[in-house]
């Protein structure tokens, strides 16, 4: 599991980095298995988000994850933004108003609280990192703003080359899906779980400070979607992916148009080139 912050060793400034050059300063990864590849609506050249799924994912985030995880780049207005969960502006406003946001100072110089507005950002559950760590056994619940893009796993050779052709970019979602569904009630024999940690098959090092966040039936869906951990995780991960890449749909759409243009233009150039060079042996 490369690229994960598994080894939260406190580096002695730059020294650790220098040591890294000298040799294997980084401990060999604990053999966390490769996460299985899942189906995602946003994968592939025509990938797009499922509005209903984003709305359910938002619900899971709001009711479960957001009690520990922040999402400081997420603004209420994003909920009504094109390519997102498809809430109306009124609905987004209603969500914002459920939250009290600190504002100020007012004319008297005092900070005050007021109901949220569309332009406000999602309020963080803790005032700072230290407070978050203090409440979570010393671990910091990472911010959700870019989290779905900030996790990966090593694909290896030749898979990493095939991924170019198949456009596989869902390492983050696949890993998080495996993580959320990878809790074991008991660690395997011989594994000593540190105090306050939980055993997770896919977390690098297996000892994660996040308690199993989801269980069946925990969140009530109004549209009849199954209320299982697997479904919750898919929904919340789609939401996280949208949060990390809010213009994913626009990107893929524009990409297709550009591709069509370039292929036609390239074809015309090819035949023009053939015509220009027709009498020149080369």
């Amino acid at each position: 599991m490369s690229n994960t912050m598994s080894f939260r060793s406190i580096a002695l400034g730059s020294l650790a980095a220098v040591l890294m050059l000298a040799g294997p300063a980084v401990a060999q990864e604990h053999g966390a298995p490769k996460p299985p590849r899942e189906e995602w609506s946003f994968a592939g050249p025509f990938g797009h988000f499922d509005r209903a799924q984003l709305q359910r994912g938002f619900q899971v985030f709001k009711e479960v994850c957001s009690s520990c995880h922040s999402a400081h780049l997420f603004a209420f207005r994003n909920l009504a933004q094109e390519g997102g969960p498809g809430f109306t502006e009124a609905q987004a406003k209603a969500v914002a108003e459920q939250y009290q946001i600190e504002d100020g100072p007012n004319d008297a110089g005092d900070m005050f609280e007021r109901p949220g507005r569309l332009s406000d950002h999602w309020p963080s559950p803790f005032p700072n990192e230290q407070a978050a760590r203090a409440s979570n056994g010393g671990a910091y619940p990472p911010d959700f703003s870019t989290l779905a893009k900030a996790r990966t796993y090593e694909v290896g050779f030749p898979g990493f080359l095939i991924d170019i052709v198949t456009q596989y970019q869902e390492q983050g979602p696949d890993y998080i899906h495996a993580l959320l569904n990878g809790y074991h009630d008991e660690p395997p024999e011989g594994f000593t779980l540190p105090e306050g940690a939980h055993y997770n098959e896919f977390f690098p090092g297996h000892a994660i400070k996040m308690p199993k966040p989801l269980s069946d039936g925990q969140v009530t869906y109004s549209d009849g979607t199954p209320e299982t951990v697997d479904q919750y995780s898919r929904d919340v991960i789609s939401f996280m992916m949208w949060l990390s890449e809010p213009h994913l749909e626009a990107r893929k759409r524009l990409g297709f148009q550009v591709m069509i243009f370039l292929i036609i233009f390239g074809g015309l150039l090819y035949f023009t080139k053939k015509k220009v060079w027709r009498n020149v042996e080369h």
Partner: peptide, 11 residues
């Protein structure tokens, strides 16, 4: 357009 983070690092 399709794999914009492929050449970068998740970290």
């Amino acid at each position: 357009f399709y794999i914009p983070n492929y050449l970068g690092h998740a970290d």
